[in-house]
Design a protein around this nucleic acid. Structure first.
Lengths: 340, 340
DNA sequence: GCCGGCATCTAGAACGTTCTAGATGGCTGC
DNA sequence: GCAGCCATCTAGAACGTTCTAGATGCCGGC
């Protein structure tokens, strides 16, 4: 059934065990295991056979301790945030093709950003990819003094030295949404914002600017919101309670839009009949057939690639580039928007 | 702004650097850093000060390499599965209060279970918590021969030696759902199953048994489904196409139920007017105000605790217990079920 | 004045790997 | 037959920590 005990006592097999069995030095086993040149085909074969027989598995901790490089990229993400989990999925691919590995550290209820980052630093990550970090700029600067850091989805103004930013052009996304709604004949377009969430300020500004550009400055209306369904539902009640109603709503993100849709639905007002609704992110929920949300898509594969590139370039000896990679958003028109 | 370079050259500060600065041995610094007894209060103070000044941070790899214990629990999970991410959140808490740390390894598009587990083993995890593993029993047995393994949400029949199972009583959950629907007057209750997904066989069986117990054996109808919204939507079309219609549907999970609801909604059939729908998991989506899905809740905090307990007991010298912890489910009645 | 015991501290090995430097041996070219 | 070279292999140090064993100094009790 299960293989026989690998080594006499309970220890996990090491290089030395393989070396003893194959009758070679540990250094040679190391060479074979890493697949570098320096061993004859015959020896290579013999060593691999011995390793297989005793169930040898390299100890990555010892390996990384010895080599000066770890090729580890630490990722801080919020485990309950669909946008983050989508991103993590793509980061795996991007890191692998750049020859790096990912170390995940989640921010969750009872696990702060600080804890998440400390754990990554203790693991000797060579760089940090922070998804929507909330930490103050001073803290990010401290980290950037230690290792390459990229902030994904959170813009930093003023720029923090050494921290690269990769983000969607949130203002442009908001503008696209407003343009779309205006082209459908809407004029009273309300924005439910994201408060202090990363990207919220830019989306708010993009909305305002677009409204101005369409000569609708006097119709600008921003309602405090947030990034959860609950925030959307709360905003919905505020909208319905306060006449006059807008004819369209741009929500901070898809979750917020979904909460809004739910509350509208329960209140018996029809979407897109009485209200047009636009979300942001193009998350999985937006694509559900019965949500079918018009939304501003973020280019997640591209963001993942740029984030990995930002840190690897620097790790490979490139200059620390403080600055931004701004990725274009793309409006996806679905069933929650209609002509007024 | 940012702190001065910690150590003359670019190296990251080590115990030796702290020791040199504080004028003590590295062994003593180690003692102070771990917070164990063996240093006077005055020295302790001085060492901590020195460490802080040069920005010392313990290297967890070196630490774990040297100590025979790593206190690391490896977690394999599917990053796109809400049930899994909920569980991970609780696992952090459970592990911490047991004195262990978590190492996360995601299964994602392009990253197989095998890769996820290999990475955890390389990190020297002392135990593995596998969320809904798909690996064949033989593979699990191999792993169990190496270290404590717990399979969450996937039942193993026949039992795999050394692998502990923690799962919801899926059959009981399905029975609760059927009981509820029958008590509302439904008789034609259809089940959309989960195919080969972990737990699917048990839910199917629970559904069948409950139908039998209510004398509805001739009304049993199982439709092949799956665990995504897409599967639910596909099933919905199959249901609507084939008369006679059932009056109630028990879906494999909430995602499947959500897809079903969406398709019903688009087809203009009303829920719970024409169909009652029950999901499984009580995931976040089920609680959305406009989904408001009646569903069978899994007790996630309890499952997380039991999973951690299962491995820690064994790590602390307990006997390897092949067997199961079965957690009771709980029906949550919301808005998608109504009297027939 | 001596001894035992405690608190505090330290030297040096150990963990499992990679890296540096060098040894060995066979082949080529003259 | 010999120098030179390449391919192959090895010894031993190194990575940053913890652990074992023991050293040192101080105190109280006889």
């Amino acid at each position: 059934m299960s293989p026989p005990p690998a080594v006499p006592d309970g220890r996990r097999p090491t290089l030395a065990d393989v070396a003893a069995r194959a009758g070679v030095s540990t250094a040679l086993v190391s060479i074979v295991m890493r697949g570098v040149t320096g061993a004859s085909a015959a020896t290579r074969e013999r060593v691999l056979q011995a390793a297989k027989e005793i169930g040898y598995r390299p100890d990555s901790r010892a390996r990384l301790l010895r080599s000066n490089r770890t090729y580890l990229i630490g990722v801080q993400f919020e485990i309950q945030e669909p946008f983050h989990t989508d991103l993590v999925e793509r980061l795996y691919a991007a890191a692998e093709s750049a020859g790096y590995q990912l170390a995940l550290s989640a921010v969750a209820a009872g696990r702060s950003e600080r804890q998440a980052v400390e754990s990554l630093l203790g693991d000797r990550c060579e760089a940090l990819v922070l998804l929507g970090p909330r930490a103050p700029a001073g803290r990010l600067a401290e980290l950037a003094a230690l290792l390459p850091v990229v902030s994904v989805a959170r813009r930093l103004r003023p720029a923090v030295p050494g921290v690269r930013v990769v983000r969607t052009a949130d203002d442009e996304g908001a503008r696209q949404a407003v343009d779309h709604l205006v082209s459908l004949g809407h004029r009273d377009i309300l924005h439910i914002d994201g408060g202090r969430a990363p990207g919220a300020a830019e989306r708010r500004r993009g909305y305002r600017t677009a409204m101005n550009d369409h000569g609708l400055a006097d119709r600008v209306r921003v309602l405090p919101g947030g990034l959860t369904e609950q925030d959307g539902a709360t905003a919905a009640r505020a909208i319905l309670d306060a006449a006059p109603w807008p004819s369209a709503v741009l929500a901070f993100n898809d979750a917020c839009a979904t909460g809004l849709l739910g509350a509208f639905f329960r209140a018996g007002v029809s979407v897109p009949g009485e209200f047009s609704v636009v979300g942001f992110d193009d998350s999985r929920v937006a694509r559900l057939p019965h949500v079918d949300l018009t939304t501003v898509a973020q280019d997640i594969p591209r963001i993942a690639e740029l984030a990995v590139a930002a840190v690897t370039v620097r790790l490979e000896g490139g200059e620390p580039r403080t600055g931004e990679d701004v990725v274009a958003p793309r409006l996806v028109v679905r069933g929650t928007t209609a002509p007024r």
